[in-house]
Structures are given as C-alpha cells and as structure tokens.
Amino acid sequence: MSHHKVEVSNLHFSYPDGHQAIRGMSFTIFHGESVGVIGANGAGKSTLLMLLMGILFPDSGEILVGDTRLTKKTLPMIRQRLGMVFQDPDDQLFMTTVGDDVAFGPRNYQLDEAEVESRVIEALTQVGIPHLKDRAPFKLSGGEKRAAAIATVLSMRPDILIMDEPTSFLDPQSRRRVMGLLKSFEHTKIITSHDLDMVLETCRRVIVIKDGLVAADGPAGEILKNQPLLDGCGLEMPLSLQSCPNCGASKYEVE
C-alpha cells in the first residue's frame, strides 16, 4: 500500500532571517511504520513537521505523500491523509465543546451530519473520552486535552499520524495512557519527542536530526543504545536503557 508512504528527498529550508533550519534531508517512511524523530532543541524537528504538513514550503527538494508531490495545489488532499497533533493542545482546541472540535475537520470536508456525528463518537471512544463530548475544552485536565486533541485528528481518518511531543506537560499516569493509545493505533506514525523512553516504547525506527541533517536512521533499539551518537547530538540514553547506578544492571534489554 504505497499511498501511506512519506518520502522526503534532499529537503532544504531557510527562515527569512537566513537561518538554515533544514539542509538536505532525505528519508522514506513506509506504510505502518512508527518512526521517532529525535534531536536537540533547534535541530530542525518542528520545522520538518511544518514542512511535512505544508505549513511551510521547502526552498528546494520535495516531499511525496504516497505518490503525490506536496504542492499548494495538492495540499487539501494531502492534509486529509496526514493528521497532525500539536504540542500544545490549546492550539488545537478552539471550538466551544470537545464534540464540536472533533467535528470541525469532518464538517470542513462537507460530510453529512450523521456521518460527522458517528465519526465524533468513534474518535472520542477510541481515545477513551466519549463522556467529555459536551464539555468545554478549557475545563479539561492536561491528559484529557491531549486525548481530545488526538481525537480531533482521528475523526478525519488520516492514513498517517504526525505528533509533536505527544507526552509533554503530562503527569506520569496520563503519559502512560497516551503511550498506550499511541501503541494501539495502526496508522503510520511520525512522532517527535525528547521523551526518549516513550520513543523507545512506541517507535520501531528512529531518525536522529542534528543541525538540519539526518545524523542517524535505524531501529530504535540500536540507535537509542548508541551513547556516543546520542551524546554528539545533544541527547541522552533513555532511562530504561541506562544501567543502574548501584548494581550496574539494565532495566531491560531491547532485542
């Protein structure tokens, strides 16, 4: 199923102030893969996501979603297939009720109201908050907001889910719930995060970005154990892979 593929080739992007954020990035993400994109602050992760979603356009290079090249003309179609969850759920929840927010996308695609309603219920059930449908978003807790933000994207039935820091600002139990949720999705997933333990648990593959370039690309277990690589990119081994300071044993080994 090639239509769930994302192909980035030789991507370049500079901000108007001249800062080169992406300098020749290439990779391909295949159908059903879950990929963690990691890197230090300012490495270019957020810029990459904005380029993938067509919020920014590259100076050169191209992005293919399935077999379609991302251009201004193909943008509406591509955005229907890529669903992005923002880092701050408050940016994503702008209607007066959670239900209306989840319905916002389907309604924009002119689906009939019965279909919109069934998608809202389905998406809210999927993230475990059907009871919050009529609540105002600002009254939700951090974890509930995150779940609602994910539901707003799921209701559009995207092929590919893109998430920016899905576990930031969450308490440990909410974080655990969101991780469970991420693991349950069968979509192709692209997740950026500094929470490397979460990346280790939810992603099979990891792309490390440094100074606007792909510094490494490979299986999560290998990359996240590579201390010199992580150190060089301003990162740190996930806690669960670090040895115990007392007995030297590791919590668990990744195959």
Binding site: M50, M53, I55, P76, R79, Q80, L82, G83, M84, F86, D88, D91, Q92, F94, D100, A103, F104, G105, R107, N108, Y109, Q110, E113, V116, T152, V153, M156
Partner: peptide, 23 residues
C-alpha cells in the same frame, strides 16, 4: 505567534474560510 499556530491547526483540518457549525 499563537494566532498563527491556531490558524495552522485550523487549516490542517481543512478550514478554507467557512466556519461550519453543523447542521
């Protein structure tokens, strides 16, 4: 900055100038 992010979130979900508040 914030308004731009909210607007981007709206556009990503197919917003094209019409606020659809349902039937």
């Amino acid at each position: 900055d914030r308004a731009q992010r909210v607007y981007a979130a709206m556009c990503l979900r197919g917003f094209a100038g019409e606020y659809n508040s349902g039937a």
